[in-house]
Design a binder for these strands. Structure first.
Lengths: 211, 211
DNA sequence: TACAAATCGATATTTTTATATCGATAAAAA
DNA sequence: TTTTTATCGATATAAAAATATCGATTTGTA
């Protein structure tokens, strides 16, 4: 178990977790891949394959022990451990993320924010102080930050990324619409809102033409 | 051109657009797939294949005409047309999205927000009034909303989705960690923050163990 | 105890996506 | 005019992901 779980799978694991949390484990002690698949609109085989990667495995006829599965998922996803993150780019999106308090439930803690704009630096926004980008090398190691959230414009993203990596950041959550270049061992997770909107917008214009 | 562009491609198109916008079209009139690929850390062949789907095509030796490419991308992505959207679920995430003013650049306009909580209904948050979820069937058609943004907890997502679809919504941007069931012709775009965090968190715990 | 039903896990197949190869062509240089 | 070079587009291959198939195993029941 636990060796090179694909990103696609990794994306479904939180769904399983959230689903298991939503059912009363007291009543439902056992649960089958088929019923999970049914509830989440997935393919049963896919569910089995995903779960096989992170859990002890189920038994024929009875399925999985819900409680164990829940424990395995939580352990694997590591929502219990706290990870410290910094946000670089205090624009609209950055501020939106700063104000979002739901991160804590996934074990994410925003410990500092950075920007280049003089009008922002040293101000406090959503209870978090904004530092100059020049302070990244100093502050990131000191605050033990290991996740960098990039919300700067596309053209600035790569240079910010380089700074973060140099400051010891090991995982990057990138909201800028570029593919970042990073050394081996650093993970980049792209959260491309523009891409999502493109998909939506494209669908609308396509169906518009049809009707 | 323009027939069944894959989601993966659709995700890269905004990158091309953002890149083209970032270079001075006055100076650079022609641009090659190779140089775009270089700038965005993509594969040249991939860029050519993507662009072939939405553009007139380039010429050997010279590449693509930057201006035309930009026009084709904008036209295809439809950022010029305004699409009206509603947000359902005025929790932390919903409020964060409500306060995000960057959507307008993609032609997205939030025209209403909904929630079930009495303490929120009829209040004004970030300049937008919150309505009762019961008003979805009435307000969505009236406001010509065709995109629904779902930011409710996982267990409520499907029922909200059904309501939206019934109210004429044709595309759904889903932030809840569930796969939604929709009739033929309705698009669901999943924006799973939990999934992204899972990827980050998993990477950190994996590299942690190694070192 | 024997049999039927449910469900898993392993292997195989299909589909989708990404990458490689190569001939064709347009522009520039000889 | 011929040759060289950059670049595209088409076709082919490889890799990744999703889905199907099927034998094996456990539990409950006759």
């Amino acid at each position: 178990m636990n060796q090179s779980v694909s990103k696609a799978t990794l994306g479904r694991l939180p769904m399983y977790l959230s689903y298991l949390k939503s059912i009363p484990t007291k009543e439902v002690t056992n649960i089958s891949a088929a019923s999970i698949a049914e509830a989440l609109n997935l393919h049963p085989v896919q569910v089995r394959k995903d779960l096989a990667l992170i859990s002890e495995g189920g038994k024929p006829k009875t399925g999985y022990v819900a409680e164990n599965l829940l424990r395995d998922l939580e352990k694997f996803l590591g929502y219990n451990n706290v990870n410290c993150a910094v946000i670089v780019g205090v624009g609209h999106l950055g501020q939106a993320l700063m104000s979002y308090e739901g991160f804590s439930q996934y074990g994410l803690k925003i410990v500092a924010t950075f920007d280049v704009k003089d009008t922002l630096i040293d101000k406090e926004i959503h209870g978090k102080k904004v530092f100059s980008i020049d302070k990244i090398p100093y502050l990131c190691p000191r605050l033990c930050a290991n996740i960098g959230i990039i919300t700067v414009p596309a053209e600035a993203a790569q240079s910010v990324c380089d700074k973060l990596v140099e400051a010891g950041i090991r995982a990057i959550w990138n909201f800028a619409p570029v593919i970042l270049n990073v050394p081996e061992g650093i993970l980049v997770q792209n959260e491309n809102m523009a891409a999502s909107l493109a998909v939506l917008s494209n669908h609308l214009s396509e169906t518009m033409n049809k009707s």
